[in-house]
Design a protein around this nucleic acid. Sequence first.
DNA 1: ACCTGAACACCGTTCAAGT
DNA 2: ACCTGAACACCGTTCAAGT
Lengths: 229, 229
Amino acid sequence: MAGERQRGVGRPNENVLSRVLIVETALDLLDLHGRDGFGMRDIARRLGVRPSALYNHVASKDDVFRGIREVIATRITVAPFVTQRWDEALITWAHSYREVFASHPPTIALLAVMPFETDSEIFGTYEQVIEVLYREGWERAEALNILVAMESFILGSALDAAAPADMMSPGDRADIPHFSAAYAERDMRTADSGAGPADQAFEAGLNLLIAGLEAQRSARAASRVAHDR
Amino acid sequence: MAGERQRGVGRPNENVLSRVLIVETALDLLDLHGRDGFGMRDIARRLGVRPSALYNHVASKDDVFRGIREVIATRITVAPFVTQRWDEALITWAHSYREVFASHPPTIALLAVMPFETDSEIFGTYEQVIEVLYREGWERAEALNILVAMESFILGSALDAAAPADMMSPGDRADIPHFSAAYAERDMRTADSGAGPADQAFEAGLNLLIAGLEAQRSARAASRVAHDR
DNA sequence: ACCTGAACACCGTTCAAGT
DNA sequence: ACCTGAACACCGTTCAAGT
């Protein structure tokens, strides 16, 4: 990069760019500098190329985002569902899902509202989540709602993890005693356990969701027994 | 707007602008046109003013965002906690919270990672959530984690509601039968009930969270009885 | 103090010209 | 086909000049 000669005009002997190279450079820049310092011109500079050269490989900045989304979706694709019990599998999946997004904070908001391509690898994981819930007795439409709800929680938690730590700090307001006390007590817990506030909240919420599922499942089992009798 | 005369140079007799006017115009534009067509120049045009005039009342575009966030936070501030049982109060709160954000989709991602000012009105609601959970037996640090988890779920659900409806459409892929069946079955449920997919998922997740809380609470009550004996 | 008008330093994107 | 170089139509923001 430092000692690179200036390239002359005309088509070079071998390609300097490619779609994947552009997408990965864009993701690097996003991680390094956040949404600032992330533009087509920045990507081009980092690749030692003129901005207009990018448009031979990507259609637009939005197209670069689509590429980033697919790269990230691929990384979520883990398959813990074959070996683990249904609840453990869901917990493992949720953790890995959140971790992928949390390690690329600026992408969360970008990607959460962007449709997947139909050939996306994400659907492999979706399939497994629906299947495991269906096998455990949930209707498939309800399983899909549960899947979406869990994704919403995971993405929201990743957003929260990306927020500044003192986002909810009450300062020294006297009119909100319970909240201030809760904030102080949580800080102590954070110091003790080493788990950050966002991590604690994620675990708390995931516990509640899984506990809610357990309750639905055992209620279903009980009513089945009553019915069979 | 149509018949306005061109204003000459120099300070006008009475102010045409104010901070709140700018912020509310910005929110209107955001709702109308999304993130496109939303810029300082657009705000200025809608107010019949030159872009540079805005900077007499706001420091920057970021400052406008901060204003929008505070307007929205104020609207969430409902107080159903005094009259309702703890679980009903949480459900009411979650619904109103989501509704405020869902009616301003483009703001969600913008505002979710932005710290609140210490004098924000949002803390009034936080105080009530912590208080009601504390009264029902949760430790305050844990109550705060539950509050944050519920917010994450709510914001994530609002993001989901803002996403295009066919975001997860599997097309006619043959390799994901359970997911495709679930998608079709959910469509039927949507047609029957009138509740959109995002609404169904939100209700499913909220049910799970509340059920999880009920389970924790009754487990606590049971262990207390055992201990007292 | 609060507006206009002109300007500055940026963007994403297009397109002809070169190999 | 794939690069450079110049250009276009935009941004957010600054600042002098005017009342």
